[in-house]
Nucleic acid binder design. Structure first.
Lengths: 232, 232
DNA sequence: TAATAAAATGAGTATCGCTCATAATTGACA
DNA sequence: TGTCAATTATGAGCGATACTCATTTTATTA
């Protein structure tokens, strides 16, 4: 017990310092950019000596990588939270697109800094891994749509994924450039486009007299009944 | 006459030196990346003293910017050349997409270096200007399609433009990551998608007597799905 | 050929990321 | 509580590098 409490105290102190360094570094990186950021200033911000940083992080690039890593993990968590309550894939994709582009725009500094890692350190492996994890939110959503029969299975999902993220990335930059906060046209346009290309519109099935049309009508009937019961 | 010849000689010498610096810098930047590139090495490659570089270029970033600028101008010229003989907008867009993604993949080093400018220097204005010029190739192509009646006019062309370049950019990265040289699926998929959404395809119009019913049913289906979720 | 302007040079400077010998702090144990 | 070993912190100093500037070299004109 005593042992645990004591070691925990030490660990807590260390972790607090680590977080202080991270926080200070984030501030300085935001303000000055990667190149402009001085290790001395980061140390001052965390109220420690410059040398202490190197006990916690191997070098400037590693520090930057840690910040980037933290950011993407939080983004992934938030993305899941954003879509978990949404049932229909169309709406979920819409929500994810909205969330993604808004994040890109709000946290543009962070995004640019992450990109800078590619330039600064050859070892972008860590960040790549985190990007993959983030991107999995989309993949899951699409797969769910396929399972439900709302979306056509795609032989190479990454093709659609790149349309999704690539478009949003570029659009975010354009919107920012024009000081425009209205993401809806972009988001709607994108998802409608994906839906037009890969969506299994129910009419496609019913047109050929497929058995699914009756099921759809039944669903419609039940739904409408519920709407009617809602009153006015 | 004599005056002109003589000054021209001097100017030629100066311009030759300038080009030598640029060539050497390009080599070193490619090989070592921006951070890894040493001004001393660039000078050695151009067979001049280190201080001479600074007569021609204000600093390392300016040197990099000049290289980037040269690259994008050449890319723009090549893009125009690639599409000038193609008449139908669909084929021209296809060709541009193919050209763009291939350039991205072949000259990945150059692209990454250009991106690095964003990190290194706040003044990315020059590069942005050149990017705009490049991007105009697409805009012209789309407008031509609208004029011919093959494409629907879009209230905000940049939305489509960002789909185009964003998708190709991301796809190029993915393909490179998988050591895949086959760009056709991406290119075809992209242009078909744009055509499906914005093309005035004659077959769409002639397919059925009630062109709007399928879209209407799709909309109904999505709306009902949303209603169904309200109850649960 | 001499005078002047333009261009080149490279030793020196300022700056910054990082190291390491030394100091301070912490926790276990008697 | 005091002692000792381990952990953590410190900051002067090192090496490296982008950039400067006093001096030299080269080109041009009369």
């Amino acid at each position: 017990m005593t042992i645990q409490t004591r070691t925990k105290t030490r660990r807590q102190k260390v972790e607090a310092r680590e977080q202080a360094i991270l926080d200070s570094a984030r501030n300085v990186f935001f303000e000055k950019g990667y190149e402009g950021a001085r290790m001395s200033e980061i140390a001052a911000g965390a109220k420690i000596a410059e040398g202490t940083i190197y006990i916690y992080y191997k070098n400037k690039a590693a520090l930057m990588r840690a910040i980037s890593s933290e950011f993407w993990q939080a983004l992934t968590a938030n993305a899941w939270a954003e879509i978990e309550a949404i049932d229909h894939p169309y709406d979920a994709l819409l929500a994810l697109a909205r969330f993604h582009i808004k994040s890109l725009m709000d946290q543009a500094d962070m995004i640019d800094l992450t990109h800078s890692l590619r330039v600064v350190s050859a070892d972008v492996g860590t960040t790549t891994e985190e990007l993959k994890t983030y991107v999995r939110v989309f993949d899951t959503l699409y797969s769910r749509g396929v399972d439900r029969g709302d979306l056509k299975p795609h032989p190479a999902l990454w093709v659609v994924r790149d349309v999704f993220f690539g478009t949003l990335d570029y659009s975010a930059r354009t919107l920012r450039l024009h000081d425009d906060q209205n993401v809806e046209p972009v988001v709607t346009n994108l998802i409608d486009g994906i839906w037009a290309q890969y969506g299994n519109a129910p009419d496609t099935r019913s047109r050929t007299g497929s058995p699914d049309s009756s099921a759809l009508i039944a669903r419609l009937e039940r739904a409408i009944t519920r709407v009617e019961q809602l009153g006015e």
